[in-house]
Design a protein around this nucleic acid. Sequence first.
DNA 1: CGGAAAGGTTAACCTTGTCAAATATTCAGG
DNA 2: CCTGAATATTTGACAAGGTTAACCTTTCCG
Lengths: 148, 148
Amino acid sequence: MHEEQEQPDPLTPEVVDLMAALVGVFHKEYEEAAAARSLTGAQAKVLGLLRRGPMPMRQIAQTLSCEPSNITGIVDRLEARGLVERQPDPEDRRVKRVVTTETGSAATSELRASLNFAREPLAALSGEERLQLRDLLQRMLDHARRQD
Amino acid sequence: MHEEQEQPDPLTPEVVDLMAALVGVFHKEYEEAAAARSLTGAQAKVLGLLRRGPMPMRQIAQTLSCEPSNITGIVDRLEARGLVERQPDPEDRRVKRVVTTETGSAATSELRASLNFAREPLAALSGEERLQLRDLLQRMLDHARRQD
DNA sequence: CGGAAAGGTTAACCTTGTCAAATATTCAGG
DNA sequence: CCTGAATATTTGACAAGGTTAACCTTTCCG
């Protein structure tokens, strides 16, 4: 795939460590924001996926890189709380499309708005620096996605 | 806790989304790298903490922001596999210091080396850009930590 | 038509994580 | 020195997230 070249660049491991630390902060904030609404992180993630419209179980599993049977349980719990509904797909009677209810999408928006992670840390940066950061992250992400 | 100020800056939510995406990529890579060595993410995290030396249970829990009783189980499983040992603290007989064994630290180094996450995405950036990125991340992280 | 393939669920199982209670040790006053 | 409060760890009970294997139902295709 790619050569196991170790980096002559001492900067790379440093940046990796920073990313790791930031991932930790972000993850923690996300869990806390979800917990404040009595949601687990996984439930919040699924709810977040449905922001743009209904999605079949299978696709949820693929997007989150986990087994479909796992999604069954998470959706069960969301449904039990009235945040989500399973509806039959008119095209294919095997598939069930998951849709957020009113309550569900309200919860998602709230959670999203409260995700002030980078509203805090980003406050340390000027407008121009934020622009720089966005571009750098965007390029890394594009690169990462092309790898799949 | 802090005011519910909405940002006049349209860039902030954009950067937050990018961070979220990158966090997802990173997290997934980390889990996979750990799984490749038959470790769970949590086990890998604890093992990684011990890289710089022994650490009492309590401190591990604090660092990972979880209950001490949780660490008991994780260390149990690491110890059962010979990756880690509990040793008594000579200063205070209540505390147990967790130390990695030879095997354990070998595993950590391996895992760390294989964490090519940002070796890949970072390849998209030039040396100077990497430097920029490091500084931006560093400042965000400093800011985030001062918030606690 | 008949069998393979795909979507979803169920059941059994392990790990993470929480909380509450128990044990052992240390520490601070009186 | 003695007692009680505080600290470090463990245990047990429990919920959620995840995996695998087995099982329907429905669709697809030769």
